[in-house]
Amino acid sequence: MCGWYSRRVPPAISDDALAEFADVLMRVAREIDPNGPQAPDIISLTGTEALVMRWVHHNPGASPSAVAKATALQRSNCSVALRSLVAKGLVERQTAPDDARAVRLQPTALAEESVRKLHAYWADRLRVALDGDDAGVQAAAALLARVDEALRRGDDPASSAR
């Protein structure tokens, strides 16, 4: 057993199979990277900026502290990314209506347009790769969402399936 994590249940899937699953995920991620050679016409973001932008887009009105916590970024790193996203016109800082001391983050219209272009790019790339065959896409997305959720919580993904 590796020292950096512990398993609560015996593995049902071999380490080799899981490693191959992770390797395939990484290869697919590289192929649909919006900063790659076939990139759509969107504003280029660093990995940290993309992580923060994704969270703000899915959670408009979140505070900077909530974004840092949810993305597991140090507050200083999150602040740098937010300043950059504001400078690029993708995020607006707004005063909370119930507390003038609090800041709420909102994606801008430019961010919404960039996300729309990015989603269209991903859909086109995957549609071509799948040759129109949508068998298993929803099941695969559900599986990946479950793994993502468990990894973010620090859970053993295998235990949540039981």
Rank of each mutant, 00 (worst) to 15 (best):
K88T: 06
F21H: 04
S44V: 14
G36Q: 05
D148N: 06
A109N: 12
D41I: 02
P97I: 09
E113W: 07
I32G: 06
D99M: 04
R30C: 12
I32V: 15
M1S: 13
L18H: 00
D124P: 00
A17E: 13
A150N: 06
R30T: 11
H119Y: 14
L130Q: 04
G136H: 04
A62M: 02
G136A: 06
W122D: 09
E113P: 01
S84G: 12
A19S: 13
W122S: 00
S159G: 00
A22C: 09
A120W: 04
L90M: 13
S160T: 15
Q138F: 09
H58D: 07
S79D: 02
E20D: 06
R93M: 03
Q106S: 05
R7N: 10
M26T: 08
D23F: 13
R83G: 10
W55R: 05
L143A: 14
K117F: 15
S159N: 01
R30M: 13
T48F: 00
T48M: 00
R30I: 11
F21N: 01
S63F: 04
Q106V: 07
R127K: 09
C2S: 15
A102E: 02
V28E: 02
A72Y: 06
G47Y: 01
A102W: 04
P97T: 09
D133V: 08
L45I: 05
Q106A: 08
E92W: 11
A129D: 00
L85K: 05
L126W: 05
D124A: 00
R162F: 15
N77F: 06
G3H: 11
S63D: 01
D124F: 05
A22N: 08
Y5S: 01
A50H: 08
R75A: 13
C2M: 07
G89H: 05
G132H: 13
V128G: 00
L118D: 14
R83D: 13
I13A: 09
R152N: 06
L85F: 04
R153G: 12
V24L: 12
Q38A: 11
L130C: 12
I32M: 04
A140F: 09
P97V: 09
K88E: 00
P157H: 10
Q94F: 00
K117V: 14
A123Q: 10
G47D: 10
A161Y: 14
G61W: 11
M26K: 09
T48N: 02
A161R: 07
L51F: 03
R7W: 13
R7D: 07
S63G: 06
A111D: 04
N59W: 08
K69A: 11
R101A: 14
S84D: 02
I13K: 03
H58C: 03
V103A: 03
P34R: 09
E112I: 01
R27G: 01
A22Q: 09
G47S: 06
S84L: 03
D124T: 03
D134R: 13
A19Y: 10
Y5H: 08
R125H: 10
N35Q: 12
E113I: 07
A102R: 15
V24W: 13
S65V: 00
G136Y: 05
S6A: 11
A81C: 03
S159R: 14
G47N: 04
H58L: 11
L73V: 03
P60K: 06
S114T: 14
E20C: 04
R54A: 12
S63H: 02
R127Q: 07
